[in-house]
Nucleic acid binder design. Structure first.
Lengths: 104, 104
DNA sequence: AGCATAGTCAACCATACAGTTCAGTGTCAA
DNA sequence: TTGACACTGAACTGTATGGTTGACTATGCT
């Protein structure tokens, strides 16, 4: 699953997760995306390219600006992968709860 | 959220996801974990360290073998982060479904 | 035509990562 | 006590990542 590789890798950076969060609110031009960050536009552009390579963001050029939109599917795939372990961690956290319970 | 950074980074490798999958079935010694992979034990040991640094795996030494167990919480955090976007991608995939519907 | 805006490209730097090999440590078993 | 087993550590290689700057392209505005 090299797709999952790239999806998780894309999400392993705080800046990129912030970009994703921002794009969940709707499409935005690159320069708008870059504005909140204390780094060059080039750097943000690279981050967006990583997201785009991972298929999480689609870039459409209108005039001189690039509009970015969030792409759902890869994130769903990642969530689905994690979801398979939900029962596991729910069980584990429940055990923890029981353990803490008994400790009192 | 540097924790999420490390969690997602840890999950961005196929080998490590396979290790996680394996550990979901119960604790296992390092050498058992390494066995299915066409790489050195050292390499697997490094992978496990990455998982351990990210808090996804706990290593307990009994005798000369290291037993690895899956640790729930960080994966839950990652899943929770992704879960926030579920409504988003469900909406988007629904739009896609409607679009495909209308195309016929 | 001329300038500002939006962004890419190329080159560079430092750090991290995935993998190797080889040598070493610690533990169990005969 | 000798040897096998289960690792870890150190050193090295190649490649990726996150960031910079400076030059360039392309579009829009006046």
């Amino acid at each position: 699953m090299p797709d999952l590789d790239r999806t998780f890798a894309a999400l392993s950076d705080n800046t990129r997760r912030a970009i994703v969060a921002r794009l969940a609110g709707g499409e935005a031009p690159l320069s708008d995306l870059a504005e909140p960050f204390a780094m060059s536009l080039t750097a943000v552009s690279k981050h967006v390219r990583v997201l785009s390579d991972a298929g999480l963001v689609r870039i459409t050029k209108r005039g001189r600006t690039r509009y970015c939109t969030l792409e759902a599917t890869p994130m769903k795939d990642a969530a689905d992968w994690l979801e398979d372990y939900r029962t596991f961690w729910e069980g584990q956290l429940e055990s923890l709860a029981r353990y803490l319970e008994e400790e009192n």
